[in-house]
Amino acid sequence: MSALFNLKSLLLVILLLVCTSAYVHALMPAILDRNKDGVLGVFWKCARIGERLSPYMSLCCIFMAVNMFIGN
C-alpha cells in the first residue's frame, strides 16, 4: 500500500521530511535559504517548521517510534 493512502505512513513521511530538512538546514543553510520559492521552497518551509517546533517534533518522533515498536 502506498504511503499516500495509509495515514500512519503519510504522517511518518511528513515527519521524516521535516526532520531531514531541519538537519540539512542546520548543516548547510545556504542551500535551503536560496530556494525559498518554487518546488524546492517546500524543503525550506519544512526546515522552518522543524526549527521552530523542535520540542514538539522530537515528541512526535518519540511517539512514532514507540508506536511503530508496539504496533509490529
Rank of each mutant, 00 (worst) to 15 (best):
I14C: 08
Y23L: 15
P29Q: 01
K36C: 08
N35C: 04
V42C: 02
A47I: 06
A47T: 10
C60P: 05
A65I: 14
G71M: 11
L7E: 08
L7N: 00
M28E: 13
L17D: 01
M64P: 00
M64G: 00
N72Y: 05
V42W: 02
L59E: 06
K45M: 11
M64T: 00
K8H: 03
L15E: 07
F69M: 06
C46T: 00
Y56L: 07
L27G: 15
D33V: 10
V18F: 01
L12M: 05
V42R: 02
C46D: 02
M68K: 07
K36D: 14
R48W: 01
T20L: 06
L10I: 01
L59R: 12
K36F: 04
P55F: 11
D37A: 08
L59A: 14
L15W: 05
E51K: 07
I70E: 09
E51S: 09
V42D: 00
M57Q: 07
S58D: 11
E51H: 07
C60A: 15
I14K: 04
G38M: 06
S2L: 12
L17Y: 02
G50R: 03
Y56P: 00
S2T: 13
F43H: 04
F69A: 13
L15S: 09
A22I: 00
M1Y: 05
C61T: 09
H25W: 12
G38Y: 03
L7A: 07
D37L: 10
P29H: 04
M64H: 01
F5H: 04
I14G: 02
I14T: 04
L16G: 11
E51M: 06
I62S: 15
G71V: 10
Y23G: 12
I14Q: 11
R48V: 03
F69Q: 07
S21M: 03
F69Y: 11
A22F: 04
N6D: 14
K45F: 13
N67S: 07
L53W: 05
L40K: 15
L53D: 02
P55E: 04
L16E: 13
I70A: 13
R34G: 03
L11K: 13
M64F: 09
P29Y: 00
N35L: 07
V66L: 13
P29T: 10
S58R: 14
C61D: 06
C19I: 06
G38K: 02
I49R: 03
N72Q: 06
E51F: 04
N67D: 12
A47R: 04
S9R: 13
N35W: 11
D33R: 06
G38S: 06
K36L: 14
Y23E: 11
H25S: 14
L7S: 08
L10H: 09
E51R: 05
